[in-house]
């Protein structure tokens, strides 16, 4: 394997997909974030806190810059995982070329690392979320993420080991059992939602839409890089 090429295309595709995610978020998710932050500020003002609109505007601009950086970091991180899994699982994926294979894997990882976790602990806008429960909520989120990820990994190993056709049912069944058990065993998000429900729902839909686009873009970019640069091949020139 061409190690440097492999690492480079994996990190590049992640960073590009993450930056695109952040840019799309500026138009799709930010309006709901802004609305929620306005509500938060109105509440704080009503409670007697002095709010300086100029300061808030400058602060929000800084945070929007941070969200672009955050997209790049998120893309790098999930991209690194995606590239690793793709390197090991490429031969198991259906599709004639690597772009199709990468898209299938991106779909699986979107399901395992985003959708399943979001169904148990959906994204919330600001104004929802008690600062005091942050570590508890993070632990719940990580637990769900880890169980879903490990169950998928286990199902993948079983799929690769088994030779009979029944693996097409057994591997998903293993994953489903673990995830359903986690859904039932893990406690719900402890925070009560005080923000208007339609705002929360719209925010969740927007967030789900852009995260889906993120995974699709990452699959497309890594697959295209892979088809072009073929990092799994080693070329040797020898003289006879």
């Amino acid at each position: 394997m061409k190690t440097l090429t492999f690492i480079a295309i994996v990190l590049c595709s992640g960073a590009i997909a993450g930056t695109i995610l952040a840019l799309i978020n500026q138009g799709v998710v930010e309006p709901f974030l802004e609305k929620a932050i306005d509500l938060e500020n109105q509440k704080a003002a009503a409670e007697g806190e002095i709010i300086n609109p100029n300061e808030i505007a400058a602060y929000r601009l800084w945070q929007k810059g941070g969200s672009i950086a955050g997209g790049a970091v998120l893309g790098l991180s999930y991209g690194a995982l995606f590239g690793l899994v793709f390197a090991y699982a490429r031969n198991m994926m259906p599709g004639q070329n690597n772009t199709k294979k990468a898209l299938v894997l991106a779909g699986i990882m979107w399901f395992v690392l985003y959708l399943v976790v979001a169904l148990k602990y959906p994204a919330n806008p600001p104004a929802v979320g008690n600062p005091e429960t942050i570590y508890y909520r993070q632990a719940l989120y990580v637990a769900m993420l880890a169980i879903s990820g490990m169950a998928a990994l286990g199902a993948g190993f079983v799929y690769r080991r088994m030779k009979s056709e029944s693996r097409k049912f057994i591997a998903p069944a293993i994953y489903a059992t673990a995830v359903i058990a986690a859904f039932l065993a893990l406690p719900p998000n402890p925070d009560t939602i005080s923000a208007p429900m339609d705002l929360v729902i719209s925010f969740r839909v927007a967030s789900a839409a852009t995260m889906t686009v993120f995974w699709v873009i990452m699959g497309l970019i890594l697959g295209a890089f892979w088809d072009r640069l073929k990092p799994h091949e080693t070329t040797r020139i020898r003289t006879i």
Partner: peptide, 27 residues
């Protein structure tokens, strides 16, 4: 001069280390 192109199985340990490091630290 003979050029041999072959598909290698497995992922180099260094790549696994670097990418897992990026994943954990980044997330």
């Amino acid at each position: 001069a003979e050029q041999i192109t072959r598909a290698a199985q497995g992922v180099p340990k260094i790549a696994v280390g670097v990418l897992l490091g990026v994943l954990v630290f980044g997330i």
